[in-house]
Simulated scan of single mutants.
Amino acid sequence: MATIQKLMNKKGVSYRVQIRRKGLPNIFKTFTHKQDARRFALRIEESKSAHRAYSSKLTFSTLVEMYLSKEYLGTKPQMQRSRLKYWLNHMGEMPINDIGKDDINSGLDKLPNELSNATINKYKKLASVVFNYGIRELGLTENPTRYIRSLPEKKGRTRYLSDNERKRLFRACRASKWEMLYLLALMAITTGARRGELLNLRWNDIDFEKQVAYINNTKNGEAKVLPLTIDVINELQLFNQNDSSLIFASKITPSKPYVFYKPWKRAVKDAELEDFRFHDLRHTTASYLAQNGATLLEIADVLGHKQIEVTKRYAHLCIEHKSTLINRVMGGI
């Protein structure tokens, strides 16, 4: 709704237009003449009416398609689409303006019982993101998910390798029938990169002179540069193809990454590691950094976390390092 306020100041009279928008920041604009203020308010209101008329006919499935094609900037649209498929089956043909809190709750209640609270929250968050897109771009007035509380989640997993475990794992990787398993594990621990980021690296992404790797497609949609240790560079040189092929290419289909599940499971077993997954190499990176004095912001930067909340699972390791440092330096005072 638009309101026009008359203002008095040293320069004379002016007119400020205020337009309230539910779920969005209000619009403020000041004019010298009241007639100009009225024209501006009328133009905005007409635009809002047109958006509302359009959105009244818009179905959820159409909104999802618009979001995926115009808004989504991640690297895995198919994964995004597969999770949204549940919502499309549940309320895809419903008009957006008819969808309410009860419809969202009904969809969440019908999810399989074995799903964790964290996974259920992701379903709710995806629906919320789509509705927020509609609010920003199409003038929708409500996001029905905003009235639904997220379920409590367990603390993030922080399994990481001890020094002895790391040595055993590296030894097992070197003995693997897949000759590049050691390189993959070494890069994972020393860079903190995700599995998908490493598997999609190509030889022309490596700058051997600067000792860095360039990753253009990441989980959060932002490119990043991975500093590489001299050990990684030396290991890469053993396999260097000097072309644009995948570094960890499949032997059967070179255009696709190698499926290393079996050699990895074998190496974990030979190294006598319990409850250890490939993604835990990333936790190992963060834990080593924390134990050696890195701040949470520095760890977040290395891992590519956009939200510091995700990195806080390593906070206790940072505190332990600080306690050790304080006792070593100040203990004798």
Rank of each mutant, 00 (worst) to 15 (best):
R171M: 10
A37S: 06
T284M: 09
D275V: 08
A2F: 05
D280C: 09
S176G: 11
M180Q: 15
N292W: 11
I104V: 15
R81G: 00
S56C: 03
Y288G: 00
P257L: 03
E165H: 03
N242T: 01
I299G: 05
F131E: 05
K177Y: 13
A2G: 07
K155F: 02
D231Q: 14
Y261A: 03
I120K: 10
P112V: 11
T218N: 06
S245C: 06
S116I: 01
A175Y: 01
I99L: 10
A290P: 03
E93F: 06
E197C: 01
Q237H: 07
D301V: 01
V232C: 13
N242R: 13
E46S: 12
V232K: 01
A175F: 00
E114G: 00
V212W: 03
K70I: 04
Q211L: 06
D301A: 15
N164Y: 02
K322Y: 11
N200G: 06
L151M: 13
I96F: 07
D243T: 09
K11Q: 14
W203A: 04
D301K: 13
T158Y: 03
A127C: 15
L238V: 14
V13D: 06
K10V: 04
S56R: 15
Q18K: 14
A223I: 00
L289S: 02
T3Y: 07
A267N: 06
Y261G: 00
Y123C: 02
P227L: 11
A172W: 07
I308K: 01
A50L: 14
I120M: 02
I99N: 08
N121H: 10
L138M: 14
N292H: 15
L289K: 02
S61T: 11
L228R: 05
L169W: 05
T229R: 07
I308W: 00
K224T: 10
G100Y: 10
Y72D: 02
R194A: 08
Q307T: 10
S106V: 01
G192Y: 08
V225Q: 14
L161S: 08
R194D: 05
P263Y: 08
M8Y: 10
D163C: 01
V302E: 05
N89T: 09
K256I: 04
Y86C: 04
L126F: 09
V259N: 13
K256T: 12
A175E: 14
G74I: 08
Q241G: 04
V17P: 04
A172R: 04
V130N: 09
T191M: 08
R52T: 08
I27M: 09
S162C: 04
K322H: 09
F40I: 03
T59P: 07
V130R: 05
I189L: 13
T218V: 02
I308C: 02
D109Q: 14
R168E: 12
V310I: 14
F170Y: 12
Q291G: 12
S116Y: 10
P254I: 07
Q5R: 15
L281S: 05
K177Q: 11
K76M: 12
D36P: 01
K122W: 02
Q78S: 11
R166W: 10
M8L: 12
R136M: 02
K57H: 10
K262Y: 07
A175N: 15
L281F: 13
